[in-house]
Design a protein around this nucleic acid. Structure first.
Length: 270
DNA sequence: ATGCACTCCTGAACGC
DNA sequence: TGCGTTCAGGAGTGCA
């Protein structure tokens, strides 16, 4: 389940393979991902040279010399992998550039791709209203406090709101709340600003550590090289229901919060 | 404006 | 062994 660290890992893997390369051929084999791909996506990318590959929130951005940028989201199960032979069932888009042949593979098809003009890229509806990057300095305790003001929602829900801060998903929300010692169900409007400062800092530390580990591989995530991330071995609460809390030895609990599993230690997180 | 349920999809894990 | 059920969840949509 790609969140910010996983997308960062994928983008870093794509960069050395594609930046500076001319895309000889881009073949759309299955256009019905989360949204229908633009009908001319393959045609518009074919012949273009990739000039940069970056990331915004959980989106990858592949810029070309034709004034277009490919915006892609990995959804739940999207990955890029080298394609030595024939494409398989879930290899929906194939990129060929010289000796490089890559497939975008996405069994669940929650991912998406679109093309946007580079000069107005951040006006794209998927990107325009995103909150700040969690690793940038704008995202901090005072920012969280401003976002929390007057809100009656659970603190975990606020962390998952991409308009508040962009790129955090279920796993890292759980881990950051544990690191900050805050109960995920606590109403965000009632948390002292100082504690929100601890939380903002915890988000940064958890994400930076996860990027360093190549992300987390649970079921789906893999780097472009096929290597697996290993941050899942560092989880303190996520997926550890019934296990001993690494902080106090108590029991990690799971509860469902707005349809998602939330893991926390009731003793360490208040 | 805010908060919530619902929806998309498939493979893995689980229960009988 | 095999079938049916449940779960995982990012994020847009639509409703109260």
């Amino acid at each position: 389940m790609p969140e910010l660290p996983e997308v960062e890992t994928v983008v870093c893997g794509l960069r050395p393979l594609l930046v500076g390369q001319r895309l000889d051929r881009v073949i759309v084999r299955r256009p019905d991902l989360r949204w229908p791909l633009p009908v001319d996506l393959g045609q518009r990318l074919t012949g273009a040279t990739v000039t940069a590959i970056t990331r915004r929130a959980k989106y990858g951005l592949m810029e070309t010399d034709r004034g277009d940028t490919l915006v892609f989201h990995l959804g739940m199960s999207g990955k890029f992998h080298p394609l030595p032979g024939e494409p398989g069932t879930h290899d929906h888009v194939v990129f060929e550039a010289g000796a490089v042949r890559l497939a975008y593979n996405d069994p669940r098809r929650f991912g998406s791709m679109d093309l946007a003009p580079t000069d107005t890229l951040f006006d794209h509806p998927l990107l325009a209203r995103l909150g700040p990057e969690p690793l940038e300095t704008v995202f901090c305790g005072p920012w969280l406090a401003a976002m929390a003001k007057g809100r009656n929602t659970a603190v975990k829900t606020l962390l998952l709101d991409q308009h508040v801060v962009a790129g955090i998903g279920n796993i890292y929300a759980c881990e950051a709340l544990f690191a900050a010692g805050i109960n995920p169900a606590r109403k965000v409007g009632h948390i002292a600003p100082a504690r929100l400062g601890l939380l903002a800092n915890a988000v940064k530390v958890v994400l930076a550590d996860a990027i360093r580990a190549g992300g987390s591989t649970l079921r789906d995530h893999a780097q472009v090289s096929g290597e697996l991330g290993y941050f899942q071995h560092s989880f303190r609460v996520y997926g550890r229901e019934g296990g001993a809390c690494t902080g106090c030895g108590g029991t990690v609990q799971r509860r469902v919060q707005s349809g998602r599993s939330t893991f926390h230690c009731p003793r360490c997180q208040r």
